[in-house]
Design a binder for these strands. Structure first.
Lengths: 147, 147
DNA sequence: TATTGTTATACTCTATAACTATA
DNA sequence: TATAGTTATAGAGTATAACAATA
């Protein structure tokens, strides 16, 4: 006879994500950034030639929401937006020097956060955790019969 | 030689929580509720005699934020607030009949969500996941030398 | 017509500061 | 003075709908 999990796994996940996410937000804020700004910068550096549609998809937000963040980032001198001469509908988003600096500052902060997070975990445990999280996400992403 | 985790675990956690959380929000919304309302109702049913301070702590929000939600829930007829005659500073929050109904509706929705989430997981895996999440949270909750 | 992105507007959750009532 | 809670205000993140520009 085994004692079942006493708490819904979704609630456990939400609690953990809330606590960890707030700690991360604090870390980013101390470095002068925020979570969406960091995700946008990371996407720009990782997927160099991304259109705004692609960036929004990568960050997991709507296009209009991305525009909102890009407006702020442009105002703060982190990015520039210019039209693509090949297809003038597309706006090319590029990092400025300040944007590069911000990226590196936030990358450092993010790395410190992640090292703190990993403390006491073995590589195997991290891999296990990552796989379990992926499966959890898949369960919710998979199309349902009813939908 | 082992291949290290390719993605920061914090990012993996945030992604999963975002996807799963949104699915849960949709589920609750379809049942006429929301995440904070569900957490408040759950706390009221679980810790019967909670003061607002305790409810706020259990839900993980500030007192003023809780007041905001309770105002909405009172307006919607889910709860009543009366002063405790023993200590008139304390407000006793109680579920109305409608509040009970809402609780059961959301509980059903939450259970369905969690069953979907657990699909394909063994009890052992869920327990492992729960323990790993708890350790992750502890890493961020623990006091730092620098703080 | 379809696609890319912006503008206008608004909603939800959250928070801090100042306040009232009570002890 | 200290505690419980509320009010006023604001800010961050997100979203939808309507629109403009381009293809």
């Amino acid at each position: 006879m085994r004692k079942p999990s006493r708490m819904p796994i979704g609630l456990r996940l939400a609690n953990t994500a809330k606590t960890v996410g707030r700690a991360f937000d604090d870390t980013l804020a101390a470095a002068g950034g925020s979570s969406p700004v960091w995700l946008v910068l990371l996407t720009l550096k990782t997927q160099a030639m991304a259109s705004q549609r692609e960036i929004a998809a990568a960050v997991g937000i709507q296009g209009a929401t991305l525009t909102h963040h890009l407006n702020g980032m442009e105002r703060d001198g982190l990015i520039t937006r210019t039209r693509d001469p090949e297809n003038r509908r597309v706006h090319q988003v590029r990092l400025t020097g300040q944007g590069e600096e911000m990226f590196h500052r936030l990358a450092t902060a993010a790395q410190a956060h992640d090292e703190r997070l990993r403390e006491g975990f073995t590589e195997d445990e991290l891999e296990t955790l990552e796989k379990l999280l992926t499966r959890l996400q898949a369960n919710v992403t998979a199309p349902r019969e009813g939908a």
